[in-house]
Amino acid sequence: MNPEEMIDGYIVEVGSLLPKKGREDIQRELRSLIQDEVETRAEASDRDVSVSLVSDVLIEFGSPEEMAVQYRGEKYLIGPRWFPLFQMVATIVFFVLTAVHLVAFAVSYWGIGAVNLFSPGRGLVEAYLQAIGISFAIITLIFGLLERYYGSDFAPEIETEAWKPTMIQPADDPDRINRWEVITGVVFSILFVGAALIFLAPKGILGWVITDAFRPLLPLFVASVIADGVVSGLVAWRGRWTTLLRWLDIGQSAFGIFVIYRINAVPQIVTVTLFNQVLHLALTIVLIVMTVLLVIKIGKQLWLWYFGKSWPSKSLPNFKMS
């Protein structure tokens, strides 16, 4: 890693702990401030700008967590250490609940008959809003408790000694991962498989929804989700992407496409005929998206293999003047 890459990595790490609003401006200013400090020290000591000089400066700036805490202000329910994960979990839960309620609505509407969306206490809209409200409250409570009991581990006075600039991952490192995102992905895979097995089992609550033609494919579907979870788990355990893990990921993506293709080939997937048509359309879209993503993954891997560097898609902020 050269000095410039070290600064970039630091800025990207600070940015990842800040809210989107104002993030780019803070990153731009931070870069300018670090460069000022580094250049002045280099001139004063008649040294070249080196990794060790940048490292000294970054130690004084503090760990990315410390810096983010200062920029966000000190009063928060969920601090920068937990906020990105909180945001991600809340977003996933929101989309999952929305999807589940849309399916419930479709099933009720086409399968049983029209439901009164606004009937007090029983309507789906009310149930949906309630579910969103309760879920958000529970997630906030969990992360609030995590912040209360584990957030202080990252408070400036404790973190200063533990953090070293050598821990910075280069901003454009193709093998860089966000461990928390990967772990959350694994957790959701487990929850998804668990829910599928419980609800879609022959005697499960939604067991009646799927047809006998689709049921034999259920283990295959569960296996594809498990394969995804296993690869994510390996990536989280390893702490970064490796060539083997990338090819395993490509393999499990291809397997996922094969499974979705097999499911989509079943004429009657669910017992509700009209919903069946919607499902086929949705699966076709999923197949197209997954195939495009797979082609991109393979393309990136071949690019990396051939050129020895990552696909040019650095997510660094634009440092031009506003």
């Binding site: 200013e29 920029y71 202000g73």
Partner: peptide, 12 residues
């Protein structure tokens, strides 16, 4: 003043 204190203070 430590950098981590001064620069965020300016923005606040």
């Amino acid at each position: 003043i430590n950098e981590g204190t001064l620069y965020p203070l300016l923005r606040r």
